[in-house]
Simulated scan of single mutants.
Amino acid sequence: MGVPEAVQAHTARKGSLMSKSNTQKRLFVLLAVWPCFLGYLLFNLYPNIVSVYYSFLEWNGISEPKFVGLDNFVYMFQDKYVWRALYHNLLLIVTVPFLTVYISLILSYLLTNKHYFEAKVYRVLFFVPNILAIVVIALLWAFIYDGSYGMLNALLKVIGIDMNEYYWLAEKSTALWALLPPMIWSGVGLYVIIFMNAMKTIPSSLYEAAILEGASHTTRLFKITIPLLSPIIRIGFLFLALGVFKGFEFMLILTNGGPSGATEVIGLYMFSMAFGSTSHNYGYASAIGMFLFVILIAVKWIIDRFGPKDNLEY
């Protein structure tokens, strides 16, 4: 009878120690996570919830708020400047993500499969824009586009195209498209690194078999690499598309939405409504923010619905 009692005591003691260990683990996780969770509540969740409330108000941040119901939303759908800004966002969303991913795929494929001696140097150079602040990148490109002493006009003049001090960011016909190079350049480096690391996981036997069958680099890229990287490419498209809709830093620094609203996007218009020099309508800006939130959800749904699925295997 003594042996079972000893076994039971040992089991009970072991269970008590395990319970104590689990409690300590939960306590440690709670202490480690709660500062981040508190920051998320204060600086992310709470502002978004308050924005929903503000969208039903007419308020400039100083005077007494006035409840106006759905008036802000009704006015927003009648505001031609909202639709103009949204149109610019749509132009950017069909160009910036596609070109960024396409250029990144080509560069990463070349650096991975061509085995250039200086590949590590190129990888660092491509990644440099990602360690620079957006302000620095924007000011650099503002210098490049300057009509009087800009690098772009100087290079064009060397090859025989004299633009006669053409200001690329000051003309309605070119201002929006001039924003594409800095936006793409600032994102290519990160995705080159991501795609290169993903390509290294593809079995070399697939490429060897394709080489034996006479497949060119282009065929290998589009028939092997891109299909196998399609889930990662989809995530890249998603992040870039959401960034195009939410971001407005380049527009704010380079053109401030000009000339004559030619580069104004929905995020910049919302910012101008809330913090502009002539307008401080937090209620209307919050309504635009709610509209932007719905658009972002729709963009994610479209990419998830029609983008490549995570079902490809080697």
Results as ranks from 00 to 15, higher is better:
G247C: 01
F306D: 02
G276L: 00
W59L: 07
F56R: 09
T201C: 12
F248K: 03
L296K: 11
A133L: 02
L111S: 11
I233Y: 02
D304Y: 07
I297N: 12
T112E: 05
C36G: 14
E171V: 01
V68G: 02
T23A: 15
L296H: 04
K120H: 06
S63C: 05
H115S: 08
P227Q: 03
A287L: 09
H10K: 14
K80Q: 12
I103V: 12
K200A: 08
Y81F: 03
P259W: 02
G39F: 14
Y40L: 15
V33R: 01
Y54L: 14
E64Y: 07
F239Q: 11
F73C: 11
Y116V: 11
K80P: 02
Y40F: 12
I131A: 07
T112V: 12
V94A: 03
M273L: 15
L212V: 11
Y53T: 12
V244E: 09
I137V: 12
A138S: 10
A178M: 09
N130S: 15
P259A: 00
Y149E: 05
I131F: 10
V52A: 05
A6E: 08
Y75F: 14
G69N: 08
Q24M: 13
G2I: 10
E118R: 15
I302E: 03
F222G: 09
T95S: 15
L221D: 05
N197R: 08
S55C: 05
L238P: 04
L312T: 14
Y102H: 11
H280I: 08
V299G: 06
E171H: 12
P65C: 01
E64V: 14
I226E: 02
A142D: 15
L111M: 01
Y81T: 01
L292F: 06
W83F: 14
L312S: 03
A287E: 09
R305D: 04
A215P: 03
V101S: 06
A175E: 04
